[in-house]
Amino acid sequence: MTRWLALPGVPPLLALLALLGLWHLAATFFGYNFFPTPGAVFKTLPALFGEAEAAANIAASVKRMLAGFALALAVAVPLGLMMGRSPLVAKLVKPLVATIYPVPKAALMPIIMLWLGIGDAAKIFVIFIGASLPLLQHSFGGALAVDQKLIWSAQAMGLGPVKRLFAVVLPSALPEVMIGCRVGIIMALIVMVSSEMIARQSGVGNLLFNSADMALYDTVYAMIVVIAAIGFVADVAFEFVRRRLTFWAEIHQDPLVPSA
């Protein structure tokens, strides 16, 4: 009878509805003008997307987020895989990672803007750093756990080290790398939003604060909804891709992404 409740996607959807319900009740109960109901907020969404400037801001933000993440993917994954297979590389990179780890990445924004100017480069760079750490960590862990015999089998077939890294180590570590991707894309989003809130020039984060300054409360909440939606969609999309790419793996973990 309640089997449809267990379908994938249904529980989160119900949770979403429950959240909106709670929000509505709380907003009507308090009745503050700075705490609008979800209905009022959703009514501003079409206007928000219809407005050229806002839509362009959102698109530009997402583009920077994806660019930073792609850069992290290209750099951190191979580096993490090499760390897992070479103790020397691990020994060299680990202390650097441990040093960057506690630094608030988005807080680097003002300093990086000194170096790279106020354009996209600085913003993409900060996102790149933020998304790199989880990718590096998970690629490292995944490569470390690759069955040595698998590598030997490939060696006996005549595969050289570079080819082994991409043809054996990468696919073996893929389930773990994909978990890193899922955490990494969320990290990219977090860094994107917070760095824009700090730099206050353009993008989603800036839009969010400008509307707060101008007392456009409905827009503030609408922007929060938009950011939350980007996070939710990115998470679901990556989980989908992960399942598609690692269906062959023996164990199917379904990691809940911890926020950072």
Partner: peptide
Amino acid sequence: AGPGPDRGPVFQEFALFPWK
């Protein structure tokens, strides 16, 4: 000098490529 296709290993753990 290192592994080569003249000597083929078969391991107790099978060591198949799980993604193939």
